[in-house]
Design a protein around this nucleic acid. Structure first.
Lengths: 209, 209
DNA sequence: GTCTATATCGGGATAGAC
DNA sequence: GTCTATCCCGATATAGAC
């Protein structure tokens, strides 16, 4: 299993991912998806009945892939700093290889905010648990009283934004594709360092009380 | 001037902003824009000829408003840390009041990446100058050898991402609107502190060489 | 399951009266 | 400048043959 030829349904889903990711819901065309999959337009309807259903499938897949590893890493048995390093390293690589994903998700969230709750249940992601674990671990390992919500968002922001804003950054700084690749590569070390330095700062403040 | 009644053209542009910001280019309907402005659909075409032109106008306005103050702040005569504090404070407020803007810009960049260069010229934003000034100021005031590119992107990321990802954050954390407002309010102090702590960390490393 | 043909509708854009 | 009426294409979706 895994190395068998893709079924027609899988080919359609793959094509749909490509098109929806880059064009968004409104910009995507059923015809383009069919062409991309190498099938007739009505076959797409045969398998997914309508555009909404197909989008649903694509969105769910994207969302799951994006947070699956996140969950894994932060609930693992690594040390606090190792988690941060591992997470940034993984995310920067994954996102720059799937550069359309995060913006696609963000847009989708605005269009169907209610949908997420259902998916959160499916993926068994437990934010409360994650936050609590983060808080405790910071206390035990680094003796820091941190706000896990802000830290968590900071980590996400520093990982996700530079990928989402790629065209903006590239134009403003005038970076070539090669320079951009190097920039992302650098971030794998720069960002964890930045975060850990910031945390150390809190430690200092604390000890001076 | 300024308190005169808006002309029809201005009413149309305002309506277009509302619709494009929330629905994006493909999702926006000329009819909806006309309704929103309280005019006939053909009037929209009379003033802007086609959808593309109208979008152009809206995008340019958004982009200019978003980076105008940024430029101002970072080229001002404030100290380095004051700049960071001022910038975050201003941006978090501005963005949460115009929450559709940043995602709208990011999407627009993917659709028309070439367009930006023209606008950069118009706004007289000079990234090179900005980066150099940042580097020098960090050296002189804090005795730090920083990479201004990464720092600049970090600052933007920490300011912009939490606003762009609002629906995601709100759903994952289960925050109410009030909690979300408070969360943003907290970030005005948390984020500058975070950044400045991170920078101090580099100082320490440096002195240990 | 896969194709062709077609129904149906919506949306951008124009013509032309006032 | 503002409106009504209309054109025309493109896109989703369905019917039905093979």
């Amino acid at each position: 299993m895994g190395n068998t030829l893709p079924t027609t349904e899988e080919r359609i889903l793959d094509a749909a991912k490509k098109v929806f990711h880059s064009k968004g819901y409104d910009g995507a065309r059923m015809q383009e998806i069919a062409d991309e999959a190498g099938v007739n337009k009505s076959l797409v309807h045969y398998y997914y009945r309508n555009k909404d259903n197909l989008f649903q499938a694509v969105f769910e897949d994207a969302f799951t892939r994006l947070i699956a590893r996140l969950n894994e890493i932060f609930l693992s048995e690594l040390t606090f700093t190792a988690k941060i390093e591992t997470f940034i390293g993984y995310y920067v690589t994954f996102l720059s290889q799937n550069s359309y994903l995060p913006l696609f998700i963000l847009n989708g969230m605005y269009e169907k905010p209610g949908q997420l709750k259902i998916m959160l249940a499916k993926t068994k992601l437990s934010p409360d648990l994650l936050m609590e674990k983060m808080r405790i671990q910071a206390k035990e390992e680094l003796n820091l009283d941190i706000d896990p919500f802000h830290l968590y968002i900071n980590i996400l922001a520093l990982s996700v934004f530079p990928v989402v804003a790629r065209p903006l950054i590239q134009t403003i700084f005038g970076f070539s594709n090669e320079q951009m690749t190097q920039f992302y590569e650098e971030r794998k070390t720069v960002v964890p360092e930045f975060i850990i330095n910031a945390l150390k700062g809190y430690e200092k403040e604390h000890s001076s009380l």
